[in-house]
Nucleic acid binder design. Structure first.
Length: 583
DNA sequence: AGTTCGTTACTC
DNA sequence: CCGTGAGTAACGAACT
């Protein structure tokens, strides 16, 4: 707040601070009270926005909630300048939630605006200025202050409806997630390139010249070709490999590992091993390391709300599919530690709480829900319990899983009734919602047309069968949506609550700096990874214990916030260590 | 030469 | 009587 403040009225009582452009380099900050009425307005130059938003008072709970079009676009530059924002309202993400919720019968009154129904696209690299060069380009969110004010007013209207309490919590959690996603990209996942290289050398052999095949992969490949009696065949071409297998007397229909395993041929075991090495080299080999790890950090782009169920997606480096064998390459800086935690069996626990199923909650008491299911006599082994539970939530109808589901239905009738009802709604073409009101997408026009034709007089049996299958597919989707989506809500709250707790922890003077984490995080514990039901915090050694406590407290707090005093546990598997690998 | 599709494999 | 959900990404093949 320097000479750049053009006009100024009081913003002290502001509940919200709406941010939007009024010119290429001028940002308007409009203060609103709790009912959305304007109480002040000023303009600042873009290059001081970080200091204004992340300046004095931002760490207090009375600080206004920042309202902006797209967190991913506004926040990166602020973080790069070493500033953070306490809480926000992301208009783009909240638009998506409200637009979907408007589809449900008796849902919120909200007419989606096309301009806001877009994905975020932020250039991964490049000058900060590039962020705003594409203002109002097709496919990006409006950045102007008037657009933001108008959209926020519409959202406040919808959210003020009686019964929208869940949605109000959901949009707050979603917005917190947007901040966290941007912060994790800025801080980066501490990645030890030397450890990664060591793993690759152990498995693949020394690094080959660019484009070359690693020696151990090449040797395996030669052996497979010899055993197949086809010294020139390409193992990397699916059709060619399939033909070679047929010639060698292996009657498979695919080259997938699961089908190969069912046949006996000397070439099969080394072939499966070859495919494993080829996969590692191609997906997470030296080329990946060169492209994605810089200065000891892996910085994927997270896409909060990128999956319809509310789970996050990611882009760049395949952040959500890092093979477990590379976990040991995730390594804290000198003088720092990693606190890694994951929730055991999150989804079935969430289902028990949603359904108010006391029997299932009893089975979930303790660390292993599957053991609890066995104790209650639904099935006889832990493996059966697991397969049956997954089948119940995913909609298995066949195989061992499908066979076991009915036994679960007898012991946990309330939980099963909830997922069965969700499936039935989906098959009928309806929409379903999560605990806080995230709403599934409606069926496509093609799906509706298929169903209505199949129910007309001139449908032939083949068409009816196709339509039935499509209906079942959709039923499985909605069945899973309510559980996966509510689990995502729980996890989002866990994460947001944890972030708030971490902000209360400060390192003692003299703590080594995690300088590669950037100016906003070099001296404080910070989130560096999150994947559905697990979290990793990078922390100065001296704060590891308080951080571990915060992780546990946040999980308990999330359970209470969603499900009140319903007696459901969310036990954590928590490790404090230098690396994220086992042990 | 560039784009799309199918297959495969990794994560939860 | 089939058919357990959600993703990202690499590769080759087939298309334009």
């Amino acid at each position: 707040m320097r000479a750049s403040a053009v006009t100024s009225r009081s913003t002290d009582a502001a509940r919200f601070l709406v941010v939007g452009l009024t010119g290429r380099n001028l940002v308007a900050l409009v203060s609103l009270d709790g009912r959305g009425r304007e109480t002040g307005r000023r303009s600042v130059a873009r290059d001081v926005l970080a200091d204004v938003l992340g300046g004095a008072g931002s760490g207090e709970t009375t600080a206004p909630r920042i309202v902006w079009g797209d967190t991913a676009r506004w926040y990166r530059d602020i973080l790069a300048r070493g500033r953070r924002v306490e809480r926000c309202h992301d208009l783009r993400l909240c638009h998506a939630i409200l637009a979907a919720a408007a589809h449900r019968p008796g849902g919120v009154p909200f007419a989606p605006a096309a301009a806001w129904s877009v994905a975020s696209h932020v250039p991964l690299e490049g000058a900060p200025d590039a962020l705003f060069e594409i203002d109002d380009a097709p496919g990006s969110v409006p950045q102007g202050i008037d657009d933001a004010l108008a959209e926020f007013a519409r959202q406040l209207d919808a959210l003020s409806m009686p019964g929208a309490g869940g949605l109000r919590r959901l949009v707050a959690a979603e917005s917190a997630g947007a901040l966290i996603g941007a912060e994790m990209t800025a801080a980066g996942l501490p990645w030890d390139a030397v450890a990664h290289d060591g793993i690759l050398r152990t498995v693949l052999g020394p690094r080959p010249p660019a484009g070359g095949v690693p020696s151990m992969q090449a040797a395996l490949g030669a052996r497979v070709r010899e055993l197949l009696g086809d010294p020139a065949v390409s193992l990397d071409s699916q059709p060619k490999l399939l033909r070679a297998l047929h010639r060698a007397g292996v009657p498979v229909q695919s080259t997938g590992r699961w089908e190969l395993r069912e046949h006996r041929h000397p070439a099969i075991e080394p072939l499966i091993e070859y495919k494993k090495l080829a996969r590692l080299a191609s997906a997470n080999g030296w080329a990946w390391l060169d492209e994605w790890v810089h200065d000891g950090r892996f910085r994927p782009a997270y896409v909060p709300g990128g999956v319809v169920t509310g789970r996050w997606a990611s882009s760049g480096g395949g952040a959500l599919q890092i093979p477990r064998s590379l976990r040991p390459a995730v390594r804290a800086d000198e003088g720092w530690l990693l606190v890694c935690a994951d929730v055991a069996q999150l989804e079935p626990r969430v289902l028990a709480a949603m359904a108010g199923d006391r029997a299932m909650a009893d089975a979930a008491r303790g660390a292993d829900l599957y053991a609890g299911i066995v104790e209650r006599g639904a099935v006889t082994t832990r493996d059966e319990a697991k397969v049956a539970m997954l089948g119940a939530m995913y909609g298995a109808t066949s195989g061992e899983s499908g066979r076991l589901v009915p036994r679960l239905r007898r012991v946990f009738p309330h939980a099963m009734a909830l997922v069965d009802a969700a499936a039935a709604t989906g098959e009928r073409g309806g929409v379903v919602t999560t605990w806080w009101g995230r709403t599934s997408p409606p069926p496509s026009h093609e799906w509706r047309a298929l169903q209505s034709h199949a129910h007309s007089a001139d449908a032939d049996p083949a068409e009816e069968a196709i339509a039935r299958r499509a209906a079942r597919d959709r039923g499985r989707f909605t069945r899973n949506f309510v559980v996966q989506g509510t689990a995502a809500e729980w996890a989002l709250v866990w994460l947001a609550d944890l972030r708030a707790r971490l902000r209360l922890l400060t390192a003692a003077p003299g703590t080594p700096s995690a300088s590669a984490s950037g100016p906003a995080f070099a001296h404080v514990p910070h989130l560096v990874f999150w994947l559905h039901d697990e979290v990793i915090v990078h922390t100065p050694e001296a704060l590891a214990e308080p951080v571990a406590g915060a992780v546990r407290e946040a999980a308990a707090s999330a359970g209470r916030l969603l499900f009140g005093d319903f007696p459901i546990d969310f036990p954590l598997d928590l490790r404090v260590s230098r690396t994220a690998g086992k042990g």
